[in-house]
């Protein structure tokens, strides 16, 4: 446990020194929120609904950091450590692959936490965002979305041949999910045919679940996203541990 904490402390320091994740996982979600807030203010999401546009988008904004960490940061750091033979050095020490992956995973969990902690007060103060559903259900769906997305990243980092292929896979996952899953471009403004296509992204399922729980909408279709994300998590985690490569 002690070595986990020391590794975590040092790796987190290195990660912050690098600044990429501070920008993409903490500052970017805030900027997107401010832009959406300035455009929409406190107006309702549609005619005749009780919640505002910002409340409807809040769940999606919380996934910007999840996308950045899980689909950019995590796969790149793991594959970079492999390519630069840092993992090889770890291989001739007693550390287990599970511990190393857990340390890197925890770093991105921390970024996601910082992001949601900064987004909540800003949304509440400036755009009077209030939760209509339950915090517990919302945070559980946030957690599930985060863990499933991070597990995808861990798998990509774990099995990609080198940094270049990891970065290509990461970009293929990151940009479409960031733009089309409803993270930045609201799901509601997309044409119906497009909504059907983008529903295959696990993160789209996560965002829909977070929206439902945040707005307190009738949860008639909660099973599908939960099962989908749970399966992704278990599958990707198992693959990333089983097929972990030091070199």
């Amino acid at each position: 446990m002690k070595s986990f904490l020391i590794l975590l402390k040092n790796e987190l320091k290195l990660n912050i020194r690098n600044m990429n994740m501070v920008i993409f996982a903490v500052i970017m979600p805030l900027i997107i929120m401010v832009i959406l807030g300035l455009l929409n203010g406190t107006k309702p999401a549609a005619d005749g609904v009780e919640y505002t546009f910002m409340e409807q988008s809040f769940g999606a904004l919380c996934t910007v950091s999840i996308c950045a960490g899980g689909l950019m940061g995590l796969p790149l750091v793991v594959s970079e450590y492999r390519e630069r033979k840092i993992l090889k050095r770890f291989k001739v020490t007693p550390v287990s692959p599970t511990k190393l992956l857990a340390v890197e995973l925890t770093i991105y969990v921390i970024y996601c936490l910082v992001s949601i902690i900064t987004l909540i007060p800003v949304a509440m103060i400036f755009w009077k965002v209030t939760i209509h559903g339950s915090w517990l259900a919302f945070l559980c769906s946030w957690l599930l979305t985060m863990i499933s997305t991070l597990s995808i990243g861990m798998m990509v980092g774990g099995i990609a041949k080198n940094t270049k292929s990891a970065s290509i896979i990461a970009s293929i996952l990151y940009f479409p999910m960031l733009i089309f899953s409803g993270t930045t471009l609201p799901f509601e403004v997309m044409p119906e045919s497009m909504q059907k296509i983008v529903s295959v992204f696990p993160i789209t399922q996560g965002i829909q679940l977070m929206k439902t729980t945040f707005l307190g909408l009738p949860a008639d279709n909660i099973k599908l996203p939960v099962i989908a994300m749970g399966t992704v998590t278990i599958l990707c985690t198992a693959i990333s541990i089983k097929y972990f490569k030091w070199e």
């Binding site: 070595s3 290195l14 020194r17 690098n18 840092i86 001739v92 550390v95």
Partner: peptide, 30 residues
């Protein structure tokens, strides 16, 4: 590897890591 130390010919280290951090991180594993 609790009992064996290794120095490879080509060793790399985390970008931006300090000597003290690399030492502390390594020591924590044993």
């Amino acid at each position: 590897f609790q009992k064996v130390g290794v120095q490879f010919q080509e060793c790399d280290y985390q970008h931006e890591i300090k000597v003290s951090e690399l030492c502390e991180e390594t020591a924590s594993l044993y």
